[in-house]
Design a protein around this nucleic acid. Structure first.
Lengths: 259, 259
DNA sequence: ATAATAGTGTCTTTAAGACACTATTTT
DNA sequence: AAAATAGTGTCTTAAAGACACTATTAT
């Protein structure tokens, strides 16, 4: 044990770190927040949970946790989903942005990294029931606005609009923006459909994310011929009351899923 | 002053933060690293500096500093450029990615956020001379590879290849990737040219960033008609030994610069 | 006039948008 | 046969790529 080198500090020490010259610098508590996006009945939804503690106790927020020393951001994000969202499944992850929030938490200096996570509804629903304070909230576009510059988050069957704690509303929009920017030339859309799916299913995913309706013929051309995102499995639907659609799977050029 | 609530900790306190329940969590030292990209003689360059302290003392690295409490990441990035790179000018900034590096620094837990910064060479050169340990290093593509999956960083007139400290080589590639992804539909390219410039100048910027040669006619069409990135000033070059080119400025739809 | 580069016109190619037409299944 | 949706063909439009042609300046 040793004394901090900074004379203004008084006694200094830290739980995990070795005593070192880093004591000359301010320390912060690293945290992660999760924007888990899914698609429910053709519209976007995000996983939120009701905070039990201050700040913002009782308010809806994105699931988030403080990062432990030695734990990667990704692992921390998974833990946040498990502990705060009741979701135990692995899913696609990508970093959104880091924020430095000296005033976020009255308890001290918190620096957060937000993650975008994608999963199909079925993988979330089966888990979420166990966590009473978690919910899949719909993301509705405010009329006349794009989803990415104004979005309403509505909960329950009454669909009452809520405001998320911190700047989490903005993080959700930022996640949607990222999704929209990447969807045409990546395989992100496949995170929302099962192994085998129809092109109609996939088009519905694109339409939910982009908030527009797409031309059927050119959508087919795009995913089949232009980017070759998908290829036929050879199977078709059965018993659907009309001509059955062919089933498709991830194109071989697009590796497989998750991260 | 008070005792940490974590019984394993021993005496606990922190230099800046109020004593609070955050003491139950591990703390880290937030830092920023700067990828300042510019274009020198038609090829990409990045600002690096020689580290004076361990870890990696004597090695080349990106300019970086620890963030102070109450200081934004952006401000910290500017301070890094000033103190480690000798560059005092404001320039365009955007966040690249956050990394959690428990083993980066033997002194303790460091979490870093990398920033991409863009500026024209003239704004850097005039400042850099004062800082002896800073240098603009060229980024060369390794033959047969894309700039974004393998790049060599070369210093001095001898152009000897160097490896940067930490994972800074990868950060540089990540910055270039971001630049390439955004250049066609944003005004980022204008950060590398003066107020008034010729289309040839601007095309050279695109070519340096993308690492390809572009068709002159379709480049003109793109920046003038398709995205309307630029518009003519009405002026032309003088005394250039051949037909003088028209001068252009930032298109009115693209706001003005910096961030 | 020549060299050099700026600027334009035109043809081709790629891919999206619109829209109608054919195909296949269940009821 | 009717309903419903799947799948295809074709025309149009936007924009990039290729390339040649004209224009304007200094020497």
């Amino acid at each position: 044990m040793s004394i901090s080198r900074n004379p203004t500090t008084g006694i200094g020490s830290h739980r995990v770190q070795p005593i070192s010259s880093l004591d000359d610098y301010d320390r912060a508590s690293p945290a992660v927040d999760c924007v888990l996006i899914t698609i429910v009945d053709g519209s976007l939804a995000v996983l939120i949970h009701r905070r039990s503690q201050n700040p913002f106790a009782g308010k809806w927020a994105l699931p988030g946790v403080f990062v432990h020393f030695g734990e990667s951001y990704e692992r921390a994000a998974e833990r946040a989903l498990r502990d705060k969202g009741g979701v135990a499944r692995r899913c696609y992850k990508e970093q959104l942005e880091a924020r430095n929030e000296p005033n976020r938490d009255p308890r001290g200096w918190v620096v957060t990294v937000a993650y975008l996570l994608l999963a199909r509804q079925e993988l979330i629903i089966e888990n979420i029931r166990s966590a009473g304070d978690a919910e899949l909230a719909f993301i509705e576009s405010v009329s006349g606005h794009d989803l990415t510059d104004a979005a309403r988050i509505v909960v329950g069957s009454s669909r009452t609009a809520v405001e998320l704690a911190f700047d989490h509303d903005e993080l959700v929009r930022s996640g949607i923006r990222r999704l929209q920017a990447q969807i045409w030339y990546t395989a992100l859309s496949l995170e929302f459909v099962p192994e085998a799916f129809t092109l109609r299913d996939l088009q519905a995913v694109f339409e939910a994310i982009l908030g527009v309706t797409l031309n059927r013929a050119s959508f087919r051309r795009h995913v089949l011929e232009v980017v070759r995102l998908v290829e036929p499995t050879g199977e078709t639907q059965t018993n659907v009351g009309h001509r059955p659609a062919a089933l498709y799977k991830r194109g071989s050029e697009f590796g497989s899923a998750q991260s």
